[in-house]
Nucleic acid binder design. Structure first.
Lengths: 340, 340
DNA sequence: CGACATGATTGAAACGATTCATTTTTAGTA
DNA sequence: TACTAAAAATGAATCGTTTCAATCATGTCG
């Protein structure tokens, strides 16, 4: 249906090679010819067929990006950042979300393979990275996102989650809370594990402080609400006076449950800290104290690293970017921080 | 780098045609051969090269989906729905967001063209649909999403926005609010325009009621906050006692500004209605009354319609799906709806 | 036993852009 | 004008898959 280089060549009275040159290296073509060809392109409404182009090239101009949860605004921000930086460099981003399913992760990676993506950005769900090794061995660079590479075998762009957990719980302890609950799971997610470790390290160094772990199956508002109800059902003795949730979605769910019941006040009875600083944390029932991660910058940086790896090929240097998380204090821990 | 059908054929001792048959129509190949070829595929780790496949086919197995704002959870839900349904039918979704930029919309459509997408799902920013006509004339089906087609020239899956606006403002009027503000813009976005029309129709039929239009440049939390401050700065006489915001993001922004100042109470001084019923509406400072749209179902249905159009080709029947919006009452208009 | 239908397999052509070794044109110089 | 170097243009080969007309094998039936 659409015009091809051949038709453009015919229209302009030149060879297909010349049309291709006009498209890709106009500097080697005489000015007069460029004009002719451009006119023909215009006239026929020619649009490059990317499939043919990438068939020849051997790989596409797409990056594959896989996040843990496409409905988490944090990951949307990461995606946004990645997408922009990729576009600036003439690449597109194929976005997918594993959504807590190992199968989906597997399928999405298959898809990336079929598309011969030029690189993979991934926040892996699987802790076994062998599939990623294979992908890289096949010549496709891989960068871990929002997740470090302990053995530095992959380049990574992440945030120090242990430190994040530490800051969060230290804040709770500083406020005099001693009976802390960490809410989050599944533990197989490394980010969750690290945030928990940070939390534990603070508790270990604080007299009288105890930490209980309330497990969740997902990091969603729904699960948060479930945990909230669980907390409401506890008797006063065991009930925590400080909660650190593994992300803001959980925290908002918990908050919702507590506020709806009206039985427990935040932060008076329970102080609450989330993680990510998504936009909605600020406009929550009780504005949420949380740990900020530079989401868009993570996305941008990840693409930069990927571009460098793609450039370098075989002998690419692995880079480890670790951003430092920051505490954002709001009323879910300190009342009336904004009013007087 | 990766193995090709040719190598698989050699490995299995058959022709390339047979390998292709095993891949696409195993029923015409003898069982013995299928086994041999499958083994070879396994051994070589063969993965189809989709570029070659779609070059041959003339079009890809991607659908292009363009939404107005990728950071709006409503559109993320639409995307989620579309993505799932597409995947069920062996298609992938190339997601883009015009983000209030006509240029971006144009570029993204160019990208879709280059990718020879099998169909376009779009919530158009441009009111001039001529580009979409061209795309369809070139043989690519187009379905409008979250947007009707007044002249029925395109298939569409939408929600009755006029009705939505009506319900929202009727609710405010029923509560005795007479000085209503409609917050939203730019007016070039049809959804905004229709919701405003619905609002106006109610006001026109109500004695003493007045409507003012507070324009925004975007439908974001930030813009909402800006409007909120504007409202705070008004003197009591002109200040509205009921606000209908064109979407939840705006509403949450407004809410945030009002609550932070502490000068005006929601809903006592100002009742607030949003639009979309995003997840975060429920966990807002003051849980938000809003108009629910079946986001995921819109996405799914849009893909269904697109598949039908693609199937039918030239003589496809245009379908108009119009969902009915529903009022969800929460405390931003009716205090203590959940407590006693 | 031979003719024939049916089933299975083959292999060359096609899709459209890019590359690059080769040829043609142009411009500059003696 | 003749010759040469540089610039410009050419076109065949290539990427990997699918398709389809043609060929080959197998078994059935008269």
């Amino acid at each position: 249906m659409a015009a091809s280089v051949k038709e453009v060549a015919a229209e302009a009275g030149v060879s297909v090679g010349t049309v291709s040159n006009v498209l890709n290296r106009p500097e080697v073509v005489s000015e007069r010819t460029v004009t002719k060809v451009t006119a023909a392109i215009e006239k026929l409404g020619f649009v490059r067929n990317d499939a043919a182009r990438q068939l020849r090239a051997g790989h596409s101009r797409h990056f594959g990006l896989m996040v843990l949860d496409s409905r988490n605004p944090f990951f949307m921000d990461v995606t946004q950042g990645a997408q922009h930086r990729a576009l600036e460099n003439g690449y597109t981003v194929l976005m997918g979300s594993s959504d807590d399913s190992l199968t989906t992760e597997e399928q999405l990676l298959d898809l990336f393979d079929e598309q011969r993506v030029a690189g993979v950005l991934i926040s892996p769900l699987h802790n076994d990275l062998s599939r990623l090794w294979k992908i890289r061995e096949a010549g496709t660079p891989v960068v871990l996102v929002d997740r470090g590479s302990a053995d530095r075998s992959f380049s990574s762009v992440s945030v120090d989650d242990v430190e994040g957990g530490r800051i969060a719980v230290q804040h709770l302890v500083d406020l005099g809370r001693k009976n802390i609950a960490f809410v989050g799971g599944p533990q197989s997610i490394e980010q969750v594990q690290h945030r928990l470790e940070g939390a534990q390290s603070v508790i270990a160094g604080t007299v009288d402080a105890v930490l209980q772990h309330m497990m969740t199956k997902q990091l969603t508002v729904m699960e948060g609400r479930r945990v909230g109800e669980q907390i409401l059902a506890m008797d006063a003795a065991e009930r925590p006076d400080g909660i650190f949730a593994a992300n803001d979605l959980l925290a908002l769910g918990i908050l919702q449950a507590l506020v709806m019941s009206g039985d427990l006040l935040v932060p008076k009875d329970i102080a609450l800290v989330g993680y990510d600083n998504i936009d909605f944390a600020e406009s929550a029932v009780v504005p949420l104290t949380t740990i900020r991660q530079p989401a868009e910058e993570i996305g941008r940086t990840a693409v930069d690293v990927l571009l460098r790896e793609a450039e370098a090929g075989e002998d690419a240097v692995r880079e480890q970017f670790v951003f430092t998380p920051k505490l954002v204090i709001r009323e879910s821990t300190v009342p009336d921080s904004n009013k007087n």
